[in-house]
Amino acid sequence: MDLPVAPTPLTWLPRRRWTLAAVALAAAALTAAIWLWGTPSGARLRYLAADTIITTQHREWAKAVIGERALRERIAAYERRFDDMGRETLQPVRPPLAAIAAPAPETAPLFRVEDIAGEGWSGKLLVVSDPRTIRIGVPGVAGRGEKVSRMMLRLGAEAGVNGGGFADPNWTGNGFKPTGLVLSGGKVFYSDAAPEEEIDVVGFTEQGSIIAGKYTLKDILRMGVKEAVSFRPRLIVNGKGLVKSDDDGWGFAPRTAVAQTADGTVLFAVIDGRQTHSVGATLYDVQQLFLDRGAVVAANLDGGASTVLVTRDAETGFRIENKPATTEGERYLPTAFLVFRQPALARIGNVWEGLDMDKFDPAKW
């Protein structure tokens, strides 16, 4: 009978290494769990991760990080905070119109595009010197939204940034049903609110003052608002930042936001996210970006996969300046802030006129 051969140390070595690796991995996992669920810094990281997940189409996944009850409480807390941020009395910017009274010559630039970046994020800044060159564009055909590039070319604009919110079931909406208000050329194109109901508004008066916050439709028309969409929250009011820290920054995400400095200059921040070159920015990041550039009023706009900046290109027709967080390059949207050389001549029609939007299905293409 053959006797068993005693294993050599070399035979046992791989097994020992796997055992040690498994023990080390289990110890690391246990340590991480204790830190994440048992320390203030770990809890901060979990809630920051949850906020980031909440801004995506997989909001429910945040339950695995903070629990279902905490998720509901977190979302409700943000809604209350955003409501509060929209109600502080706003002192509108008074642009020195005498300095920008004459239309820009055909050869003069209407805007400039700058690179911007921070810790973990990068994007573009659209700087518009005359706020009166900005109009709200809407789709040209009823039934679905329109890409900003197509909207810009069709209406003869020189640049465009995505605008307000819209009904977006499971993040697959057709982009045609706005939420809140759409105002273009001083005319109400769309409103799902009663005249006395407060809604979140971001827009410009005929004199070029930015308006942001919670107002009734009567307030908006009384203030002479000419171009507006709905989104929130406000980030800066009367030169004061409203987002206290990254902890209140709604996680990392692609962001679009707008601000105005004391001389009337308009700043559109378009920040990439959910990509290797740019994870995304918090609302606090955007706020600080604007404060560093002298903004006195600022507000958040629709972000995520909607975030896009488009400019006119002599050779290709248009150029997408940022890198949208979607494989399609651009989403179909209901509104955009467009920059025109002759804004008064832009033929922007009310595509929702006569439609019963209560019967419209925003999920059907």
Results as ranks from 00 to 15, higher is better:
96 P>K: 05
73 E>H: 13
178 P>F: 04
70 A>Y: 15
82 F>K: 09
168 D>G: 08
107 T>W: 05
126 L>K: 04
86 G>A: 14
162 N>I: 05
106 E>Y: 02
87 R>P: 00
97 L>P: 00
119 E>D: 13
93 V>N: 03
129 S>Y: 02
134 I>V: 09
126 L>A: 06
167 A>N: 10
89 T>N: 03
94 R>Q: 15
156 G>E: 13
125 L>H: 05
75 I>R: 15
152 M>P: 07
116 I>V: 15
130 D>I: 00
162 N>A: 15
141 V>R: 12
67 G>S: 12
94 R>L: 14
116 I>M: 15
103 P>I: 01
134 I>H: 03
140 G>L: 10
176 F>I: 10
117 A>V: 05
78 Y>Q: 06
155 L>K: 08
149 S>G: 00
104 A>R: 08
99 A>L: 14
112 R>K: 11
110 L>A: 02
123 G>M: 00
168 D>Q: 09
89 T>H: 11
102 A>Q: 14
123 G>N: 05
113 V>L: 06
91 Q>P: 07
88 E>A: 11
90 L>E: 10
88 E>I: 09
134 I>N: 03
106 E>A: 08
78 Y>D: 13
138 V>Y: 04
80 R>H: 01
133 T>P: 05
131 P>R: 10
75 I>F: 07
117 A>Y: 03
140 G>I: 06
79 E>L: 10
